[in-house]
């Protein structure tokens, strides 16, 4: 392995471990239990079907858990290391800072993917366990897992760059999630399409025949390309900003 590959692998391994050892896992467990409880309870109500499961996953996972976990983990990842000064080891090593930034990014993507996949499985199985008709449920779960992975790529890129540049990234992150995506994103007209959530729903609509998400209008391929290009642009921007960052 080249020194760069070793450096990148080291960054990825230690950053992922740090994220998983952080006490924020308590929040993740609580939120996952909440998702499972809501889905399990909903499945026991009259008329509960796979359409209902799809709608719940759309709301609880795509609109809420995915961006919130990405914000909690992503915005604080580099910022906390700057604040507690543990970043010194990274920025005084010969590993190019842009490569180190990629290490942070990949670690974040892996950890979020694992956590969200677990939450989706727990929530989905909870629904299916109590639902009278579970046909098509596994298919819905798999599509949501795949769509969430795409969501993780873009939200991680967005909140990581915020954390690298801003001293209080959490406020802008909250504004984005709850005001832009939650409020303005729900407004009728074109403005609603300028959100990550909408693009993810367009992609999901190509593969799901259940729930409201199946009726979202748009070209899934275009949305996928848009989100991936945006993730690449944001990650490149973050890597550049991280290289230029003065750590006093």
């Amino acid at each position: 392995m080249s020194p760069i590959s070793i450096g990148l692998w080291t960054m990825l391994r230690f950053s992922a471990r740090k994220l998983l050892q952080n006490r924020r896992w308590i929040i993740v467990v609580l939120l996952t239990v909440l998702v499972a409880a809501v889905m399990g309870y909903s499945a026991t109500q009259d008329g509960a079907d796979i359409d209902g499961m799809s709608n719940l996953m759309d709301f609880l996972l795509i609109a809420f858990l995915l961006p919130v976990l990405a914000l909690i983990y992503g915005a604080s990842m580099i910022r906390n290391e700057i604040d507690d000064r543990s970043i010194v080891q990274v920025i005084t090593s010969p590993l190019d800072r842009r490569i180190a930034y990629l290490g942070y990014y990949f670690a974040l993507v892996i950890v979020l993917t694992v956590l969200l996949t677990l939450a989706t499985i727990v929530g989905g199985l909870s629904y299916l366990a109590f639902s009278p008709d579970g046909s098509g449920g596994i298919e819905v779960m798999l599509v949501f897992i795949a769509v969430q992975f795409i969501g993780v790529l873009i939200y991680s890129a967005l909140f990581l760059v915020m954390g690298a540049k801003l001293k209080q990234p959490i406020y802008l992150g909250l504004f984005y999630i709850f005001i832009w995506e939650g409020f303005l994103g729900s407004a009728p007209g074109a403005i609603g399409s300028y959100t990550i959530r909408h693009q993810l729903r367009v992609i999901a609509s190509e593969f799901i025949n259940y729930g409201d998400i199946a009726h979202v209008i748009g070209d899934g391929t275009t949305s996928l390309i848009t989100l991936i290009v945006l993730a690449i642009v944001l990650t490149s921007l973050g890597a550049f900003l991280f290289r230029e960052l003065e750590v006093a």
Binding site: P3, G7, V90, P94, L95
Partner: peptide, 19 residues
């Protein structure tokens, strides 16, 4: 990092130096 032991910490540093 308080959760790492001394040897793990040095392996982290060594990895960043491409060892």
């Amino acid at each position: 990092p308080p959760e790492l032991d001394g040897r793990e910490y040095l392996r982290f540093v060594g990895g960043l130096h491409g060892m």
